[in-house]
């Protein structure tokens, strides 16, 4: 009798896992970069392409790094949220314009408002690869020492921002 129960036991375990699986997103890739230093780069700025900047220049600040593009529809979804964050002023937002025409990106910012302190221009997407970007928008929280502390894939939501990013940023700013 007992050994005939083995298949049922295995099946029950399987069902539990499948049940948990229903709540997970198989396509979301966790970043191995969390807790690691933010990869360095030196890129031209959207505000003035003759000027270059690097994340190293932001040492000593806690900042939000938002990868976006003018051709990215879901980036528009989070735009208002970023604008309100920028107005609030508690956490500076730096953008990276991913594989885009700088002119298009400037037009978007002119039309919908500019939440970014500065926006890096990543024309060929190389810098984004270093950050493990696989779909825009993606958002990283970087601390005073230049360490990546949090990553969000996909458009930011109010819940993620208020529930995770801002409390963590507050803690890091101390």
């Amino acid at each position: 009798m007992k050994r005939f129960l083995i298949p049922l036991g295995i099946f029950i375990v399987l069902v539990i896992f499948l049940g948990i699986g229903l709540k997970l997103n198989p396509r979301e890739v966790p970043s191995p970069l969390i807790g690691k230093p933010a990869p360095d780069f030196r890129l031209a700025l959207l505000s003035d392409p003759s000027r270059q900047m690097s994340p190293a220049d932001l040492r000593g600040k806690v900042w939000l790094f938002n990868v976006w593009a003018s051709w990215c529809g879901s980036c528009r979804q989070e735009h208002d949220l970023l604008l309100s964050l920028a107005r609030q002023g508690s956490l500076p937002v730096y953008g990276m314009d991913y594989k885009d025409q700088p002119g298009d990106a400037q037009a978007v910012l002119a039309r919908f408002g500019n939440p970014y302190v500065e926006t890096f221009i990543d024309l060929d997407g190389r810098a984004a690869i270093d950050y493990g970007v696989y779909g825009v928008p993606e958002t990283y929280l970087i601390d005073k020492n230049g360490t990546i502390r949090y990553k969000h894939t996909g458009p930011l939501t109010r819940e993620v921002l208020d529930g995770k990013i801002l409390p963590l940023a507050k803690e890091l700013q101390r």
Partner: peptide, 28 residues
């Protein structure tokens, strides 16, 4: 659609779980 997934999972649990239970009771 998660609702579909949940339905099939419950259906699986009933059909397969029930059969395996019956199997455990009778196969010996």
């Amino acid at each position: 659609d998660p609702a579909r997934g949940l339905f099939i999972l419950i259906f699986l649990a009933v059909v397969i779980g029930g059969s395996l239970l019956l199997f455990a009771l009778r196969a010996s």
